[in-house]
Design a protein around this nucleic acid. Structure first.
Length: 874
DNA sequence: TTGTTCACG
DNA sequence: ACGTACGTGAACAAC
């Protein structure tokens, strides 16, 4: 049998060391992790190096110990443990548990005493003992069988104390370390020692007298000196100090050496722990081992004839797509898994299976998917209908933490500890290097995805249930995915010829302006290049530099606006920029996106934004121009898909401010909305103390800007920029606003305070956003996080509301058996198309459903209109 | 790929 | 003293 090795770690001391040695790291959920990380590194290293047969981590039990009976002030005057550290002990304990390592604490005793007692017992049984601590006190335990490792500056660097090392370092035996402490004391433990005696003197004395006892017995032999007087005066204190510094080797432990046997870690629990902590390096180290071990018994069956025997009632379904453009791209294959079987189905095989078609369309057959919207949209192009989606990994993971990005299955399941899977990039390559792998590799990749989704479902759902987010996911996001999918597949008609005609007009105008600019500049240059434009404006024409960017002069619109009076060229540049934007993004860009059916089919990203909003891509239909008339005309190209149909648009009025009124419950703001008056005018009246009819356009404009600022998490600087006033004036506005709406002020402060405490903010429907940056030591980073803490509950709750309205609206349309259908969502508005005969009923039910979807302390208000084009539905 | 600008809510 | 309003996507230039 190999020799037994006992590894003993001083938990508290190592955690402290790690905490102060490493910068204050956090994971994505805002939990501090530096001490945990340092501790993990140390533990990992020791286990690998020592390869112990028994391990224990000892902790201090509480504030008072038997030493306090001797000396009340023992360890007195210590700084309180920083909260950033104390919160980490929970995780350190969890880590130790994941390793299946025993941890132990004993009331009235310190970790030192536990370690000392066990070390003594182990040596009597002939074991080797390795102690790890950040505290040199432990070195008194050193002997031929006990080695003590003390951390040095970093965290994984240690000094190895053997009897020889102690001798070399102090010229003393390990036992004499206690005597040394008795004489010199220890300021960190508040052990007094003999005043005036430091390390040097203590060592000198002990070399002569060996022990404290012997020193006092022979004190008469010392020559008279100040030192001698001090020693004599402090004799009892010296004995007491020695006693305090002595590690108790007979602590009444309730565990035995046999309980400490180490048989290796719970790998799965460790992976999960590293995931939670965001310990990338440690995780990567594990993955290599994991994949190679689990890989072997993983078989994916390639199906050549897909029939009922393959299709079960609860299965993971994965539709593998060639890229993210699921409205146009190829389907590379289908994966199915049910915990027993894993199938890869070439898409050509799937297409020919009527059983598969029926299985997909069955409401009662539960499918577990990741990105169900992409699956149902892509399959719909081949005549498949998908129903019965019971789980969507992408959405669930997004609700769990919206900071996640990307739809690849591998990183998602890895976040929940499932490792036997490869990333898309690893299988296909990236960008220009993208290529199909062999069918074998493809089958494995698709099979793995399906299997991982099946495997991870319960764990993910459990996580959401524990955070009370399951309802948000299951009753809001999951049904919404279906609705969004239908909207995307339905598409909205865009008239090519209308856009083309606008494009030609624009081109003519642009050519004229372009010439004008070249004439005024005295040369040709690329007006679209901020760099070249900067040279013309600020070097050649010598205009005032208002703002600089990282790379040079800023030529942004707000800057140019201020330079209007300095040179005639400015207005032309502004005009050029505006028209050029329309031409490239909205005319040319949109034309490229029109499909054969004359429609554009956007993709609504449902698992992307940090706040819970949707976003829209290819094309982005959430930023079609409206503010300026020239741009607004683009909307004339958006038309209904059938003759005698019209577009119907309904938008929430001031939804974010209403949400703010609700969440803050500010008396005045709630009152304002109940009155039903224009909110910006009403704000102006209150802030400027004037009557309604005295509010001029400037006052209203200022009030509006303040209202916006409030929603964004106001700062005087931001407001000053927006209103082009001084910071001081902006500050005065804000102060006045908060005087009038004190409840809003309190609410904002509380939002930040709560977020700091719990690490995240929440919305009306319990959506979360984690804000680790709230504890940043960088002013800018921290301020940003604070504004986010104020804005996200507002923006996110508004997003919750309209999402719920979409679900309610969809149900209502079905219930009323209307042909009307939802086409677009633009954050606070819904756009439908409907036969014109249905408009009267839509005018009744759409506002009704939208306004009633969630009851707030203030009414929700919906405005609506309809027309033959999107432009006319205003 | 990164930075700047500008379209929307 | 610090220097940004919150949330997005697309086009373009310049590395």
């Amino acid at each position: 049998m190999t020799k037994e090795k006992l590894l003993l770690l001083d938990g508290n001391s190592l955690a402290y060391r790690a905490f102060f040695a490493l910068p204050l790291l956090t994971n994505d959920q805002g939990v501090h992790t530096n001490a945990t990380y340092g501790f993990t590194m140390m533990l990992d290293r020791m286990l690998n190096e020592v390869k112990p047969t028994k391990v224990l981590v000892a902790f201090d039990a509480g504030k008072t110990t038997f030493r306090h009976e001797t000396f009340k002030e023992y360890k007195g005057g210590r700084q309180k443990t920083p909260p950033e550290l104390s919160e980490q002990f929970t995780y350190i304990r969890a880590l130790i548990d994941a390793y299946h390592i025993k941890r132990y604490e004993l009331p009235n005793y310190e970790a030192d005493d536990i370690i000392g007692t066990l070390a003594r017992e182990a040596t009597t049984q002939g074991m080797d003992v390795i102690v790890v601590s950040g505290d040199k006190d432990l070195t008194q335990l050193v002997n031929d069988y006990v080695t003590v490792n003390i951390t040095r500056k970093g965290i994984t660097e240690v000094d190895v104390y053997t009897p020889a090392f102690v001798e070399e370092k102090y010229g003393l035996t390990p036992k004499q370390i206690i005597d040394m402490k008795g004489l010199m004391g220890d300021s960190s433990d508040n052990i007094p020692g003999v005043p005036g005696v430091g390390e040097k003197t203590a060592i000198k004395l002990l070399k002569e007298f060996t022990t404290v006892e012997n020193l006092y017995e022979n004190i008469d032999t010392m020559k008279p000196s100040k030192m001698k007087e001090k020693l004599i005066a402090n004799e009892t204190q010296a004995y007491m100090s020695k006693q305090l510094a002595t590690i108790h080797l007979e602590a009444p432990l309730t565990i035995a050496l046999d309980d400490l046997t180490y048989q290796g870690a719970d790998e799965e629990a460790l992976v999960q722990f590293y995931q939670e902590m965001n310990f990338k390096t440690l995780l990567d180290k594990m993955e290599v081992e994991e994949v190679s071990t689990v890989d072997e018994d993983f078989t994916v069956e390639t199906v050549t004839d897909l029939t009922k025997q393959h299709l079960k009632a609860h299965m993971a379904l994965h539709v593998e797509l060639a890229n993210e453009h699921y409205h146009t791209c190829d389907i590379l294959g289908i994966g199915l898994a049910n915990g027993e079987k894993i199938y890869y189905i070439p898409f050509d095989v799937a297409r020919q299976s009527d059983d598969f078609k029926e299985w997909l369309a069955s409401e009662t057959v539960n499918k577990y998917v990741s990105d169900s919207k992409a699956a149902l949209a892509s399959l719909s192009r081949f005549g498949f209908t998908v129903k019965g989606v019971d789980f969507d990994l992408l959405l669930a993971a997004y609700i769990d933490n919206p900071a996640r990005n990307g739809e690849d299955v591998a990183p998602l399941v890895k976040d929940y500890g499932y490792m036997n899977i490869e990333s898309n990039e690893a299988v296909y390559g990236k960008g220009a290097k993208w290529k199909l792998p062999t069918e074998e590799a493809l089958a494995l990749h698709i099979g793995r995805k399906a299997h991982s989704i099946y495997t991870i479902k319960n764990k993910v759902e459990e996580a959401l249930k524990n955070k009370e987010q399951f309802t948000l996911y299951k009753d809001l996001e999951l049904p919404l995915a279906l609705i969004l999918g239908r909207m995307e597949v339905q598409g909205i008609c865009v008239e090519r010829k209308t856009l083309e005609a606008m494009g030609e007009q624009l081109q003519t105008k642009l050519a004229i302006i372009e010439e004008e600019i070249y004439t005024l500049a005295g040369e040709k240059f690329n007006i679209n290049s901020p760099k070249q434009l900067g040279v013309i404006l600020f070097d050649k024409l010598d205009l005032t530099v208002i703002k600089k960017t990282k790379t040079g002069y800023s030529t942004a619109a707000d800057v140019l606006e201020k330079l209007k009076d300095e040179h005639e060229i400015i207005v032309h540049i502004l005009q050029y920029r505006q028209l050029r934007k329309l031409q490239s993004t909205y005319i040319e860009g949109l034309l490229k996106e029109i499909h054969e059916d004359q429609k554009v089919h956007t993709r609504f990203q449902q698992a992307l934004t940090a706040t819970g909003r949707l976003s829209s891509t290819d094309p982005n239909l959430q930023n079609i121009p409206i503010r300026l008339e020239e741009g607004r005309k683009i909307r004339q190209a958006f038309v209904p898909s059938q003759p005698d149909w019209v577009l119907f648009a309904a938008d929430y009025s001031q939804i974010e401010l209403r949400v703010l009124a609700h969440m803050s419950n500010d008396k005045n703001l709630v009152e304002a909305f109940k009155e039903g008056m224009d909110i910006h005018t009403r704000t102006a009246m209150d802030v400027f103390h004037v009557a309604a009819e005295e509010v001029d356009s400037n006052m209203r404009r200022a009030a509006k800007a303040v209202n916006f600022g409030i929603v964004y998490g106001i700062s005087d600087y931001g407001l000053s920029q927006n209103l082009d006033i001084t910071r001081k004036e902006a500050d005065t506005f804000i102060k006045k606003y908060f005087e009038v709406f004190p409840g809003v002020k309190t609410y904002m402060e509380e939002s930040v305070a709560i977020a700091k405490k719990q690490g995240y903010v929440t919305t009306l429907l319990n959506r979360r956003r984690y804000l680790p940056d709230l504890n940043s030591s960088n002013f800018n980073v921290r301020s940003f996080a604070e504004r986010t803490a104020m804005n996200t509950p507002i923006q996110g709750s508004a997003a919750d509301i309209i999402k719920k309205a979409m679900i309610d609206m969809n149900a209502r349309l079905e219930q009323e058996q209307l042909q009307a259908r939802l086409l677009l969502q633009v954050h606070d508005e819904l756009i439908f198309e409907a036969p014109k005969e249905e408009i009267a009923i839509l005018e009744k039910i759409v506002p009704e459903v939208m306004e009633r979807t969630i009851a707030l302390h203030v009414p929700l208000k919906v405005d609506y209109s309809s027309g033959l084009t999107w432009y006319d539905a205003k």
